[in-house]
Nucleic acid binder design. Sequence first.
DNA 1: GCATGAGGAG
DNA 2: CTCCTCATGC
Lengths: 262, 262
Amino acid sequence: MAGYWKIATYNVNSIRARMPVLLAWLEREQPAVVALQETKVRDENFPHDEIKAAGYYAIFKGQKSYNGVAILAKSSPENVRFGLDEWGQPDEARLVAATIDGINIVNTYIPQGRQAATDYFYYKLGWIGQMREYFNRYYQADQPVIWVGDFNVAPDRRDVYAPDKLLGSVGFHPDEHAALDMVRQWGFVDIFRHHVPEEGHYTFWDYRVPNGFKRKMGWRIDHIWATAAIAGHSVRAWVDTDMRQGPKPSDHAPLLAEFNWS
Amino acid sequence: MAGYWKIATYNVNSIRARMPVLLAWLEREQPAVVALQETKVRDENFPHDEIKAAGYYAIFKGQKSYNGVAILAKSSPENVRFGLDEWGQPDEARLVAATIDGINIVNTYIPQGRQAATDYFYYKLGWIGQMREYFNRYYQADQPVIWVGDFNVAPDRRDVYAPDKLLGSVGFHPDEHAALDMVRQWGFVDIFRHHVPEEGHYTFWDYRVPNGFKRKMGWRIDHIWATAAIAGHSVRAWVDTDMRQGPKPSDHAPLLAEFNWS
DNA sequence: GCATGAGGAG
DNA sequence: CTCCTCATGC
């Protein structure tokens, strides 16, 4: 519906490889805010001009090969912040925050974790845990805050294609669920789940699973979470799988939500 | 003109990367014979089906990454031969010969030579020298023979954008000229030169020269040479630079010649 | 600059 | 399967 304030999160898996798809989708969808993850590009190579020509401000922090986050917005972002803590982490290219249209946006690309019971996995759990401190440090739970991004965690059985088989694997592990739940309890509502209780809505399909998208072998690991102050204004949420039909899709699909917010 | 027998030579710089451009051009130009160089593909990955669907027989010999030659033809190729000598050279993916419509076609991708006074350069000179023996071994100079391909040599001052500056560099070196002239004297006419005496007609523009094509900084290193038996039937010859305007052009443009030959 | 492959990652 | 970097060739 025109007039609603719309936010999207989209793991592009390389913004440079995804530019034709991304620009066509921005043109069509016109969200007020787009949170991008895995831009995989150094800041000096970020396609700022093309984004600007599409009508968006862009704030971004990247590195070569891995990670990289950005926020695109029709209004100018304020209070821009990068990284999980104040003293610039090893991977500050995983979090970008800004205030846009009076709403506090936090966009994260949470570490993938590789394998349960590895250092990578414990690093991921610790990273998630620090998000609660992050929200405590910068916001209050009665403010309008939207936490979006690739969380690399599917919260419950409805969010993976084979919950019994996958339980305990990275992305659908009890420890991840516990860690994420601690952050949720700071004051978030899973906006997609709020509107869509049914199972089988995914945002990610592993390239290595043959025909994973067609066979509906996906994961819901990208999320839009909001505090009560704004969750009450949410109108709908959905996964945009259109671009998965076209050429050169990302392994993720965009997740969108609309709010009746001036 | 419809009815003329048309041959083309085209260094595709990877046939797989060039398929969209190549197919559109075949559809438009419909040559009887097309000699391709630098296909850069192993035989098992040669796009045989698409070529066949375009109405062409294909004979090819490739290797991974480098070299690779092919002949596409509307009529079935006979007496097919690969490599410079009978006992399968290290780089047999540089020469393919066949008889098509009664005309003996030899398609070569002559070594580039890298730097004057290196082993690579002397290898190139030796390779060119062996071409005279090759023609002696398989043909007689009064037969219809067409030698086409990327010779990696610009024969005279009209064939490079800066003859004074470039004289002595690889591709425009007196030793290359002498070697090539020995083969010419076996019995060949440079068909393009026969029709177009003017300078400044090129078939190759180094990708590394910024805007080389626009600035006309090219080389005429692709050739169609024919014995008198068939040179006398040649009607015209030209470089097709159309595809250089479109997306993803090769660093070479196709060279074409027409003959009034049944 | 534009191709190729190898090796690493997810 | 689809990205990345790096090395290599022209």
